[in-house]
Simulated scan of single mutants.
Amino acid sequence: MLCIDLQGKRALVTGATRGIGRAIAQALAQAGATVVVTGRERSRAQEVAERLPGEAIGIELRLEDPESIKRAYAEVEERLGGVDILVNNAGVTRDKLFLRMTLEDWDEVFQVNLRGTFIVTSLAVKGMVKNRWGRIINISSVVGFTGNIGQVNYSATKSALVGFTKSLAKELASRNITVNAVAPGFIETDMTSVLSEDIKQSYLKNIPLGRFGTPEDVAGIVVFLSSDLASYITGEIIHVNGGMY
């Protein structure tokens, strides 16, 4: 029987205080990794970290603020010496029809979903290159492939993460660092709970498996991609959407 063992590995998950990010942190911890829980509020990140099995720490990290990212990663290096696994999960939406979308709506989503991801990855990858081992998993979205009304900005960033993933995978492969992405479909989280029942049912009709996904459905794939079982997989996009795309 195959078993995923991440003992001795250090994993950082952005946006890990709720939803998919929290489930990923939980799954990585259960597999034995030391987990860095990051979120916009240190107290909340620490609270989540304290509830994880094994060793975990909670740190404030605001992806829209380059200085916050640098401070957070400096703390990670001081306390853990760096990370072996990076999960770029955090993201924001500012949904609005394109004709009503402002430059601020566009910039805010790009600052968090892309610029912030670039900065934290550039910091983490230096140690991975030195150690000649690393796993980078970027959380994209089905809307990066299908598009979605009212999400031109968000969809654009999730599409961009695909190119980011595939290009970075080619650059880092010689250093034994894999870079992959996971593209969730309709996952039941706080973000989707505000949708009306009519909208939810319209989505459900397009999902062959007949149910919405859970954060744990995504977390399981992330743990697999973090392990040696996936050591020959890089530059790939794994779709977790029940067959809707």
Results as ranks from 00 to 15, higher is better:
M1H: 09
L2H: 06
L2F: 07
C3G: 07
I4P: 05
I4M: 12
D5C: 06
D5I: 01
D5G: 07
L6R: 15
L6D: 13
G8A: 01
K9L: 03
A11Q: 11
L12V: 02
L12F: 09
T14K: 09
T17E: 06
G19F: 00
G21P: 01
G21M: 00
A25H: 05
Q26G: 00
A31K: 10
G32M: 07
V35N: 14
V35P: 14
V35W: 15
T38G: 10
R44S: 09
Q46D: 08
Q46F: 04
R51K: 13
R51G: 15
P53E: 04
G54C: 02
A56P: 08
I57H: 07
I57Y: 05
I57P: 11
I59D: 07
R62C: 02
L63F: 03
S68I: 02
K70W: 05
R71M: 04
A72C: 06
Y73H: 12
A74W: 02
E78H: 07
E78Y: 02
E78S: 09
G81M: 00
D84L: 00
N88L: 00
R94D: 06
L97T: 07
F98R: 05
L99T: 09
L99H: 13
T102R: 13
L103W: 14
E104F: 02
D107R: 15
E108L: 07
V109T: 15
N113G: 07
L114T: 09
R115E: 03
I119A: 03
S122M: 08
V125N: 12
K126D: 03
M128L: 08
V129W: 10
K130N: 10
K130H: 11
R132S: 12
I137H: 12
N138R: 07
N138T: 04
G147T: 06
N148H: 11
N148D: 11
I149L: 14
Q151E: 13
A156E: 11
T157R: 04
S159G: 15
A160H: 08
G163A: 10
F164T: 04
S167Y: 08
S167R: 11
S174C: 06
R175T: 03
I177F: 15
A183S: 15
A183L: 08
P184N: 11
F186N: 07
I187H: 12
E188G: 00
T189Y: 00
D190T: 01
M191R: 10
T192A: 05
S193K: 11
S193P: 03
E197V: 01
I199M: 09
K200A: 00
Q201S: 06
S202W: 00
P208I: 00
L209E: 08
G213N: 09
D217P: 09
G220C: 01
G220R: 13
V222Y: 07
V222Q: 10
V223W: 11
D228V: 00
L229C: 03
L229E: 12
S231E: 10
Y232W: 14
I233D: 12
G242R: 15
